[in-house]
Amino acid sequence: MPVVGVRAAVGLVTVLAVAVLAGCGTGSGGTDARSSTDAGSRSDSGGQRVPYWVKGVGFTRVAQDLGVTVPRTATQRLGARQKGFQDDVLLLAFVLPAGEVDGFVDGLDPEHQPVHRKRAAAPAGYEPTAPFAHLGLAEPETLDGVTAGQVCAPCDGELDSLDITVAPAGKDRSRIYLRGID
């Protein structure tokens, strides 16, 4: 093909691409092809882009959604839900007296016994998609001397998976990190 023909073909492709892209948007006076019931649409998320943190969903609601009964002695109770593209992530964290941790973990009835890890599984600066940093906490994957494992996958009900990490939180106390996928 001569050089002039190649340039003409490239120009035509460029014009067509711009026309197609312009037709995909919603210019002023246009209508959006997505319906308000499409999963992940802006109307489902209150105009927010997915993923986003669900406002007003805290510790009590997340514990209920995870199906976890938190001991009354738990302190520093934190929880959040992140709305995702396909799945939501539920984060729950609290501190227990060290003497109550084994009973709590056993009560979850994990499929496999959690494993003690001397060194962090991830380097400092690790940022998961749904970070515990949202709750003001260090990521459990970056902590040394923790016990971690999967509680269930799949789980009963709507929960797809639940992971636990137990980290030292001072003298005779441990922080429980739970991350569920719903």
Score class of each variant (00 low, 15 high):
Val115Pro: 01
Tyr126Asp: 04
Gly25Cys: 07
Thr60Met: 08
Leu159Glu: 05
Asp182Leu: 10
Leu108Ala: 00
Thr75Ile: 12
Arg173Val: 06
Thr14Asp: 10
Leu162Gln: 01
Gly27Lys: 05
Asp109Tyr: 05
Gly47Gln: 11
Ala74His: 04
Lys118Arg: 14
Cys24Ile: 12
Thr129Met: 12
Gly25Arg: 13
Ala33Asp: 13
Thr147Ile: 04
Ile164Trp: 00
Ala93Leu: 05
Val95Glu: 13
Gly58Phe: 08
Leu135Thr: 05
Ala98Tyr: 00
Ala169Tyr: 04
Glu139Thr: 07
His116Glu: 08
Gln150His: 02
Trp53Pro: 00
Gly84Asp: 05
Thr60Tyr: 06
Ser28Lys: 08
Val166His: 00
Asp160Cys: 05
Val13Arg: 15
Ser174Trp: 02
Pro140Ile: 01
Leu135Cys: 06
His134Phe: 08
Ala120Tyr: 03
Phe132Ala: 02
Ala153Asp: 10
Ala74Cys: 06
Ile164Cys: 08
Ser45Thr: 12
Thr165Lys: 00
Met1His: 07
Val89Asn: 04
Asp163Pro: 00
Gly11Asp: 03
Gly40Gln: 02
Gly125Met: 13
Leu137Thr: 04
Gly23Thr: 15
Ala121Arg: 15
Glu141Cys: 09
Ala138Ser: 09
Thr31Asn: 11
Met1Arg: 11
Asp38Asn: 09
Thr142Asp: 05
Ala167Tyr: 01
Ala93Glu: 00
Ala138Arg: 03
